[in-house]
């Protein structure tokens, strides 16, 4: 997959997603929760970009802003040639079939009053104009693709287990032959023994249909398995983007390093040998991020400059982008 010519399918430039805070008697605009603050990255055709980080770091917001489920505060999101962030309503509707989403909680993202056939067929009703018989045929094909028995087409979501419900959500996302799918924590709500089934399905579909994924997850072991490149987010910004193997072997950003060291491994021998970096304290509020580097309050390698100057995401080694003064000293970067 890597030897095909690398063409970015998704180009994100300076994406900002602020949620306003209104306070006081007059509900005046008094500040913003900077959920995503100046994020730029590319996703190449056919690759899986893993997006990892802790809860509240803005990874889901990035996923939603990319598909314009939120209207971004600023920035561009070019997906397959069109800037999704600024498209008009009708043009956006036309664009929707190329970009789809698989949600975290299959229980909450499937309408309990619709049958499986109706759920999977709804995007077809909206966008395809196929006659009923052909539409049903397409629904059956999709059910086959995701490993659901056709006989269950007239059942309701509650009659399925968590893993099967996630398959329904995937079939719905595939209905319109998308190019790009945002998978927002698609396995977080599933049991360990079921997670592997869903991940294998996503990989098979990618191989067969040439899909491009943004795989959002907090499970770093699973991201190592599925992603080609990985972006690590902290407090609304990207700390590091690197090819998978480089990141896991040698994380450059101190946060990426601490995050990886915190993941427990299912092997008592390795667990006994590892040195763990325990970060002090909690993540600061995104409504009031610290001055300078946003990780400076918890960074074990913090330097005086980190409190003053915000590091810029810079290519530190070929293909590896890091926002840290330690890795790319400020004289080599353009200040702020």
């Amino acid at each position: 997959m890597l030897d095909t010519a690398k063409r970015p399918l998704v180009q994100v430039r300076n994406l900002k997603m602020y949620f306003p805070i209104f306070s006081g008697l007059l509900r005046r605009h008094s500040g913003d929760v900077k959920a995503v603050d100046n994020v730029s990255f590319d996703i190449f055709e056919g690759e899986t970009l893993g997006l990892v980080g802790e809860s509240g770091c803005g990874k889901s917001t990035v996923g939603r802003a990319l598909l314009r489920l939120y209207t971004p505060t600023a920035g561009n999101v070019v997906i397959d040639g069109d800037d999704v962030a600024t498209l008009s309503a009708e043009a956006l509707r036309q664009k929707r079939p190329t970009m789809q989403m698989v949600f975290q909680d299959p229980q909450a993202s499937l309408n309990p009053r619709m049958t499986v056939a109706a759920i999977i067929g709804e995007p077809l009703d909206e966008h395809s104009g196929l006659p009923t018989a052909e539409k049903l045929e397409r629904v059956y094909t999709l059910m086959d693709q995701v490993g659901l028995n056709r006989r269950f087409a007239n059942r309701y979501p509650h009659e399925f287990s968590g893993g099967q419900r996630q398959r329904i959500g995937i079939a719905r996302a595939l209905a319109l032959n998308p190019k790009f799918i945002v998978c927002d924590e698609p396995i977080a709500a599933l049991d360990v023994s079921i997670q592997a089934q869903v991940v294998n399905l996503l990989e098979d579909l990618q191989d067969r249909l040439g899909l491009t994924y943004l795989f959002i997850s907090h499970d770093l072991s699973m991201v190592r398995h599925i992603a080609d490149r990985v972006a690590v987010m902290y407090l609304g910004q990207i700390a590091e983007i690197s090819p998978r193997d480089d990141l896991y072997a040698d994380p450059l950003h101190p946060y990426a390093e601490a995050l990886l060291s915190a993941v427990p491994e299912p092997d008592p021998n390795r667990e006994g040998r590892r040195t763990r970096i325990i970060l002090k304290g909690d993540v600061p509020s995104p409504a009031n991020p610290p001055k300078g580097c946003n990780f400076c309050t918890r960074c074990p390698k913090v330097m005086p400059i980190c409190h003053d100057l915000e590091p810029v995401l810079t290519e530190a080694r070929p293909g590896r982008f890091v926002a840290c003064h330690l890795v790319t000293p400020p004289q080599t970067t353009r200040a702020g």
Binding site: S161, G163, D191, V192, S193, I194, Q195, A196, Q197, V199, N200, E203, L220, S221, M222, R224, H225, D245, Y248, L260, V263, E265, P266, R270
Partner: peptide, 21 residues
């Protein structure tokens, strides 16, 4: 076998426990 590893050899495909509890 079904959980992916953080270090060591990366598995090409995850082993699956078929079926449901």
């Amino acid at each position: 076998r079904t959980i992916p590893k953080l270090g060591g050899q990366r598995e090409a495909r995850l082993q699956v426990i078929e079926g449901q509890p």
